[in-house]
Amino acid sequence: MAPITNEQELQKTEFRWAMIVTGAVTVLFAVIGISSFVMALHPPSHVESIDPATVSQSKEFAESNLGTSVDPDGAVTVRIIATQFAFVPRCIPVPQGKPVTIRVTSPDVIHGFLIAGTNANTMVVPGYVAEVRTVFGTAGDHLMPCHEFCGLGHSEMWALVRVVPQAQWQTDADGKARCDISR
């Protein structure tokens, strides 16, 4: 590099650095952009509203309909209510290596969950049905804590996700899976 003898030359070095920064930032854009548009990786962003006052009377989130169900076409959907201070149901079986859609809502305050060791993660906001789509690769039990402060009992609000190898995966006649029968 030539020695700096005037302001113009000094600014040239800064301009050169700005180009390097542009390169680094372009790498971030490219990786995120490609995985988003080509691999369809997004944060869960399904927007669907629901009246929190009548969640339990709704057809979808009635108590008998909660938990894991397999449709006739094989699609796996998990329905959960997050409420102060528990998830219903507390144990959620899912098949290993198959696409799973998790639909959650809250009748009271803001909750959230993550499934440890996986990318499954969402806020659960009263007034909305949060939907998370993922594939569980690792068989075994995964903890599912509530991850947003929801009141003084928040620390006790944990569920369990049981990822069942496909060979052991079973459902009952209605297409429902439960932790006790899937094992």
Partner: peptide, 26 residues
């Protein structure tokens, strides 16, 4: 991770967030 916004504005604000690294890198 919120359910009240779709992917469009989340993606837009992600891009703007990448740009906020620029003044720090400079």
């Amino acid at each position: 991770m919120d359910p009240e916004h779709g992917t469009g504005f989340k993606f837009l604000q992600m891009m703007l967030t990448v740009l906020v690294t620029v003044p720090t890198l400079l």
